[in-house]
Design a protein around this nucleic acid. Sequence first.
RNA 1: GGGUGCGUAGCUCAGCGGUAGAGCAUCGCCUUCACACGGCGGGGGUCACAGGUUCAAUCCCUGUCGCACCCA
Length: 897
Amino acid sequence: MLNKSFEPAQIETRLYELWESRKAFSAQPNSGKKPFTIMIPPPNVTGTLHMGHALTMTLQDTLIRWKRMQGFDTLWQPGTDHAGIATQMVVERTLATEGKTRQEMGRDAFIERVWEWKEQSGGGITKQLRRLGASLDWPRERFTMDEGLSRAVREVFVTLYNEGLIYRDRRLVNWDPVFRSAISDLEVESKDVAGNLWYIRYPVEGAGDATITVATTRPETMLGDTAVAVHPEDERYKNLIGKSVRLPLTGRLIPIVADEHSDPEKGTGAVKITPAHDFNDFEVGRRHNLPMISVLDDQARVVLDEIEQDLSAVEGLADPAFVRSLSGLSREEARKTIVARLEEDGWLEKIEPHRHQVPHAERGGAVIEPRLTTQWYCDAGKLSGPAVEAITSGRASFIPKQWENTFFAWMRDIQPWCISRQLWWGHRIPAWYGPDEHVFVAHDDADAQAQANAHYGKPVELRRDEDVLDTWFSSALWPFSTLGWPDKTPELARYYPTDVLVTGFDIIFFWVARMMMMGQHFMHDVPFRNIFIHGLVRDEHGQKMSKSKGNGIDPLELIDQYGADAMRFTICALTGIGRDVKLGRKRVEDYRAFITKLWNAARFCEMNGVKPVEGFDPATVKSPLGRWIIAEAAAAITEATRALDSYRFDEYALSCYRFVWNRFCDWFLEFAKPVFNSTDEAEAAEIRAVAAYVLGVILRLLQPVIPFVTDTLWHSFGYGEEGSLISASWPEPVVPAGAEAAQAECDQIIRLITEIRTVRAEMNVPPAQKAPVFLKDALPQTLEHAQRWQEAIGRMARVSEVAPLQGDIPHGSAQAVVDEATLIIPLAGLIDLDAERARLKKELGKAEDEVAKTEKKLGNENFVTRAKPEVVQEMRERLEAQQGECVRLKAALSRIG
RNA sequence: GGGUGCGUAGCUCAGCGGUAGAGCAUCGCCUUCACACGGCGGGGGUCACAGGUUCAAUCCCUGUCGCACCCA
């Protein structure tokens, strides 16, 4: 016997372990089945499961479970990435509590420590994914720092280097002065900050007291100014172009140049140019061949090395001693000190409050410093061509399609990808330097040494590059490195290209684009055929979930409280195309009701002896009720399949919901009640078999989204052994003979019952009060149907008897119209005739409005001649039906008098 | 400033040329032997606004306003 209610906590863990131990999630490379592959977007090894994971993993699991049932050899590849900065931060924080730093420990000891951390506490998210029910092929789990994947990274680096697609360059990078590393421009977040515009006078050389005033948001960088720029068309400054100014404080002479970068409308129209500390200024510097002087070090402290020799003393303008005193000050302190000194010396014209965009590190939040350094770059511009081509040619497609534009826009002006990071944790760059800094890129030490020996003609000592690669560099290889590349493994041949990538739009650039570039370059084929982009999870008010707002919901807590199935179903039901998912506790609670409903329906079936019948053929069912529900089930299967085929998770969930609740429970089981208790054994047996068949369809249809409760029922009804539903086959629609007539019949009975219920409810007839129903003007077929469904109508509409009307209409009857027939419900003394008259008048009013609308349409000459004939025909039929209803309602009204 | 998406019932969202839909909420009634995480019934919408195309527009086109996100 099934329990009175479904207890997810009692079964989820056990069932998951059963699946896993039976290798139910495993790919079967030798099966001869067609493969279907999804690569997990590898979660960060330091991460814990949040709602965003719950969303994306639920969708992926639903797809993979569905495809598995459809008979594909499914591979859902699991794993995690090593998250360079995040992981290093975590471990450094632990070290700090022990009073240690990684610098004291040294590189090797630190790396060892990180591995220890990884073994003990890393990848906790993989356990949490199991709570979700995710059917990942765990024995194939990979980590981006695995030996195999690291080999792939080295292979790619060496190859791209040899092809000239990886190179070193000295240019501005986004520098995080806290981590002291370059970071990607994608990891920089511009924030609107309240700052100031400082207006500073720079004296024009050889022009007496003339000055030019520049407006700047960063006065401290003036130590590194190498020009002042004005717009070439700016009349105010035209005569100054080509002249020089003498920089306050340092006394250096710098030119006034004409450049369209300066906006005459902004500030004074004259801007100071600091090429080594600003991206725009860098470009100006390049255009005008300006020196690039760095005045901030790796921690964004003032450093004077590059300006020391040019310091000069000018009375009231420049003071080398003051400048030297700035050495080692932070950006913020230097700014304060410099502004104070300028003011004192009379060079500060004014200060204006000013809001502007300041770059911050997404991780850690430090203010980013543009900094001139030598880094390793990947020539993304060259790699992007084939990636774009893959989309334009249709070999890979975004769903929804509009993300293609986002992808193209970014790809079109893609910047060189800075791939080096000044960290220890990660793939160390396979580059070695000789005594003269000559670079040798190699797979390993020995290879590098051999190259160097050949190059120098003698053994030399090599120094390996200290830096590591951007984590996304290894993630970009994920679709083939996990399958064994660079070896030619059977898996690689079988599962690449993968079928679909499921992810959020926030990482199209970070990851999707880079996988596409690397896949095209190294595998000569796309990494995935479809790219399904889903929305973000938000709270019920549409706010982004975030730690700082405290509006996040822990998916594990939801699972504890409502069960994994309820959460998964909620996610599916709310995942429309291209829409964010607004999820609150209440939503999950609401959809849990569906799980409970399914459970109770199954329990009811069990109580009534419903069991799967061996050899049962739904196509040969005789009873109208059986034929009807089987046809309805077929429609549900078709809808659900189509929905999944087009990634309409909401439609999939809701078509199942509607079928289970509004067809199977509300009508089929209710209609089946009298049959289950009937003395007609043959009919009862057939309906039991039909119920078992339909329940089996329901469980299979829902397995992909709610695997726990469905498997529990599957097993307890004896459809298969425990844990076997996951490998059952996806249901096929079956439409039995005579289904159309059965549907017409059942639909009519449903309309009849609903009509009686409405009348009774509106007339406030107590449910306990039964009444007969007489049919007036009914066709023989309608009478026959009403007769056959006597019992169900009686119970469901609180009717004592259904019969054709004999003689006159009893006084005090309520009346209603169903198709051609008028229902007469004698309720003398129970209803208020005035109320009944009012009710009928309202009905009539509605019907007349409809008639008027249709008549107007048909009265339009243009409509009749120009609309499609079938539409006109449909309107004519509609008008006839509507007029019939009006006639019957009028007749009913006149009978009341 | 450039781009994308969205404004449909109180809320969350479907529908996207031919009679406006669902879930939740709300209001009645119901301890009917699967389910009160339930059953039955009702009310509630100039489909953001203004033009245009069409026999017909919530749906297509143009513009306006509002909201969100992405890029600069």
